[in-house]
């Protein structure tokens, strides 16, 4: 038995190695430039008097200057800062543009008062919200996360189970497919009035709506994944003595996983939108409620600050889902990166 000539086609999993060898001190020009600009933005914020009495202007200036100084330090030491440098080295253009954008924003809103009040807030207003109202914002973020987690997990499990059943069993497909076709396209928010009336609390109604919204894409994609499994896989498994249980658990489901993850991603996005609507309409907590509340008080800075928190929460959750997918689908080539 020989394997001559074939070994070379096994793809080498070699990652080009980045080493910190070379001159003792190798400054990082991009970092130095970004650091200088951040220090500059801080100086501008501190030296130019505000057009109005904004709170936390000095704190903002100090934060910008300290951040800039740290960047300059990393820039001077370059690759000698190790892991930190590795993480930052590609971010220099972003850090530069962010410093410039922040300076322009600061000048336009806080220094020259160019944009209509109260709809626009300067950067220090964000700082004010996070420092003065941070506790409430954190509580809201936590409440949103809890609601989302319960609803989404229930929905994902239900959708996955339904999708596998419809994809696998003709009988389930006969009854389930028309239902899914009828209910699937209906936006989950259309159930809002019924849900708030039928469930004992607005929280449980919201869990139901989020679960419904996330279950449908998961069910549809799981179903199409299971239905689309190469029938040769079943032939192979059957000749090897596989039971129907083995065919479902060890052939159909793993083969459908790439589809399932697309469904989980779509379901998560649907869940975000339903979460915010449910919190704006009925639930007396969470970031959706905070947005609504801030708008009621014309506290636009609070609204922007909450939006930013919401964006971070959603982005983190999607990132987490993609991390799980990369783990589960490690056998696939050329995965979409997040």
């Amino acid at each position: 038995m020989t394997v001559t000539g074939e070994l070379s086609t096994l793809e080498p999993a070699v990652v080009p190695e980045r080493t910190g060898t070379g001159p003792w001190l190798q400054p990082w020009v991009g970092g130095l430039a970004a650091g200088a600009l951040w220090v500059g933005a801080g100086a501008l914020t501190a030296a130019w008097p505000d057009a109005d009495d904004w709170a936390y202007t000095r704190e903002l200036a100090a934060a910008e200057a300290v951040g800039g100084a740290l960047l300059v330090l990393v820039g001077l030491l370059g690759s000698r800062t190790g892991a930190l440098f590795e993480r930052l080295r590609n971010l220099a253009p972003w850090l530069i543009v962010l410093a410039l954008a922040l300076a322009v924003w600061e000048v336009a809103v806080a220094k020259l008062n160019l944009l209509p009040r109260p709809f626009f807030a300067p950067p220090q207003a964000f700082l004010e919200v996070y420092l003065d109202d941070g506790r409430r914002l954190a509580e809201c973020a936590f409440a949103s996360f809890g609601l989302l987690a319960v609803g989404y997990l229930l929905g994902a499990v239900a959708g996955f189970t339904a999708g596998v059943a419809i994809g696998w069993s003709r009988a389930v497909a006969y009854w389930g497919h028309p239902l899914l076709r009828l209910i699937g396209p209906l936006p989950a928010t259309a159930w809002l009035p019924i849900a708030f009336f039928a469930f004992p609390s607005s929280w449980s109604a919201s869990v139901f709506l989020i679960a419904l919204a996330s279950a449908i894409p998961v069910a549809v994609l799981t179903w199409s994944g299971v239905a689309g499994v190469n029938s040769a896989y079943y032939d192979i498994a059957r000749t090897l003595g596989a039971s129907p249980r083995f065919l479902v658990l060890r052939v159909a489901i793993p083969a459908a996983m790439p589809h399932v993850f697309v469904g989980l991603f779509m379901g998560l996005c649907m869940a975000f939108s339903v979460l915010v609507v449910a919190e704006m309409v009925g639930v007396k907590a969470g970031l959706g409620w905070y947005l609504q509340w801030a708008q009621g008080w014309a506290a636009y800075a609070n609204m922007y600050a909450a939006l930013l928190v919401l964006a971070l929460v959603c982005s983190t959750l999607v990132g987490l889902l993609f991390r799980v997918r990369d783990r589960v689908l490690v056998w696939q080539k050329g995965l979409l990166k997040w």
Partner: peptide, 17 residues
């Protein structure tokens, strides 16, 4: 089908996962 009679296809159809 029975494991005493096994088939090898033109396509190896290994389970990619």
């Amino acid at each position: 089908p029975d494991p005493s009679r096994l088939m090898v296809f033109q396509d190896p159809t290994l389970f990619p996962w």
